[in-house]
Design a protein around this nucleic acid. Structure first.
Lengths: 242, 242
DNA sequence: AAAGATAGTGTAATGAGTACACTTAGCAAA
DNA sequence: TTTGCTAAGTGTACTCATTACACTATCTTT
């Protein structure tokens, strides 16, 4: 049997989502190149003997200082001509020992709670920033494809396992925040009363004593998400095909 | 920046599903090794300059002679110790020039209509066979993990895009076949009248003139699936989270 | 004290899901 | 040809979820 012994590089790229109470953003890194700003997804080569998930965790940790984030692989990108923009090729030549080598990358989605964490400066990036997912932004390499696919896959995933959406909210949140998040994910707006009615049917949303403070209107009650109750309630699969 | 220049092999492995009017099966290849039967998923190394999807199509075509099958990547498997069984290591040594090299594999799901196609003999396998997905069978390498993950991902995918299930049925099929398939995927049994009521609401199921022949009971009407109508009807997303 | 802003609340109508039993059409065996 | 077997094909009543829709309550600011 023929053995081509063709060994490309392997990397991971992370689409890191955050919710700012209005819209959903992804984390981008910015570098200056030939006087222009170039944006890209954070990522790195997989090291020898390193598990793929571990490589993605490592990228996340170096960037955010956080561990045990929601993290899920969503697709491998392996087109032979993934990198064809001259600007990208120039960049690759400046950082890789073997720039001619094909790179296959594994896309990972990650969810973070944006309240209260700081970016860690990275060797990769001059700057790290949140960028609205719905606002177009040209990215390096095939990172637009990766980010769009990641966003699509996240929404599909949340349809099936809505629980993970709570990874985007703070520990305590109002029903308004939850509804806004829901609307940002689904992309449609919902009736407030019907939304509340449906949510409050669910025992996994637990009302807390605490209310909002310092707002110039009637303060909203805080809720928290109870994962154990959720798992019990959601044993029922939904399965309505066609 | 450090560049490890660590380049593993890349392969694809295919989980190929077929429906025999009773249950769902996957395609396995069998080889004899040390007098024992060893079963595995069909797969191959990705060649130089070859796209990942192309590699998977190639494996499928070599095995079935069919092209344009439903084909979807579902996960990359990259654990550094994917291959640890001595039997597997021995096999690898006999077929690879660089057997010590780590292999990262991309899992693909594929759906075929089983009526009327023949397996093509392959250089890989002494025998190709259908095996019930629900019946446990020890496979080589981490192929049990790959097959189970593929089956899980297929079901999740069908929840969101039920249309693809029709890739498992012949061009013309009875509602009984459709219901059996539905039940095999979902894993629960359904009421016949309610199932028919729900299905016949959908315009994309088109009744044909033809009926079954040669059955020792009232012959069932044949239906076909109209993809265009489906796409119109299914513009409505279902989006009921929580 | 008034104005501005968002939280929080109920009802009636419609449509979908569920449970459930008998008749029909073809084939085969007596 | 009659009888029996098998799976196809059909309708109704009940329950429960979804939908559309408008006003009061509470806090801050001016």
């Amino acid at each position: 049997m023929e053995d081509f012994h063709y060994n490309p590089h392997i990397s991971v790229d992370c689409v890191i989502f955050g919710f700012d109470d209005q819209k959903i953003n992804i984390l981008l890194i910015k570098r200056k190149q030939s006087g222009k700003n170039v944006f890209a997804l954070p990522g790195d080569l997989v090291q020898k003997g390193e598990d793929l998930d571990h490589a993605a965790s490592r990228v996340l940790f170096e960037l955010t200082g956080l561990q045990n984030l929601y993290l899920e692989q969503f697709k491998a990108f392996g087109s032979p001509d993934r990198i064809k923009d001259p600007v990208d090729i120039e960049w690759i030549k400046s950082i890789r020992e073997h720039p001619e080598e094909r790179v296959i990358t594994i896309g990972y989605n990650s969810l973070v709670k944006v309240d209260g964490f700081e970016f860690t400066p990275s060797s990769f990036a001059e700057e790290v920033l949140w960028h609205p997912i719905e606002k177009p932004q040209k990215l390096a390499f095939d990172h637009n494809d990766i980010a769009n696919t990641g966003w699509f896959m996240l929404r599909e995933k949340i349809k099936r396992e809505p629980m993970i959406a709570f990874s985007l909210l703070p520990e305590k949140f109002t029903l308004r925040q939850l509804q806004t998040l829901y609307e940002a994910i689904v992309g449609i707006s919902l009736d407030k009363r019907n939304f509340r009615k449906r949510m409050l049917r669910n025992n996994f949303l637990v009302a807390m004593e605490e209310r909002e403070t310092g707002v110039s209107h009637k303060p909203a009650q805080y809720f928290r998400f109870d994962e154990d109750t959720y798992r019990e309630d959601f044993a029922r699969d939904q399965w309505f095909l066609f």
